[in-house]
């Protein structure tokens, strides 16, 4: 967990650049897609499940194991639920006028 100054700075570079990318990518989305977008972004931060897996790997006390298990459950709910619900919403946008499902 000791980070060198170079690693710290690299992380800072990534942070700042990713923030700009996030801002740029979303600033042109039409209002009608705001709900799916919120939901889609919600699914993306479900990547926290990877963090939960990493701490689960080294959990060695009953408390740590219990908390890590809960973290994996919550993270998986976020990922699986997030992508599924976004897909359900977007499926409905795909229909062309005139198509009847």
């Amino acid at each position: 967990m000791e980070l060198s100054a170079f690693e710290l700075l690299s992380a800072l570079f990534i942070l700042v650049l990713a923030a700009f990318v996030g801002y740029e990518v979303v600033s042109k989305v039409p209002t009608m897609l705001h709900t799916p977008l919120m939901s889609g972004a919600n699914a993306v931060h479900g990547v926290i499940v990877v963090g939960a897996m990493l701490v689960a790997a080294t959990a060695d006390t009953p408390i740590a194991i219990g908390l890590a298990l809960l973290a994996v459950i919550l993270g998986t709910i976020n990922v699986v639920g997030g992508f599924t619900v976004t897909d359900r919403m977007l499926e409905m946008f795909k229909r062309r006028p005139g198509d009847r499902g």
């Binding site: 990534i14 942070l15 990713a18 923030a19 700009f20 990318v21 996030g22 801002y23 990518v25 979303v26 600033s27 989305v29 705001h34 977008l37 919120m38 972004a41 919600n42 993306v44 931060h45 990547v47 926290i48």
Partner: peptide, 12 residues
Amino acid sequence: AGTLVGASGAIL
């Protein structure tokens, strides 16, 4: 991913 969502959520 976290920063991306943090920034896009803020602009949204």
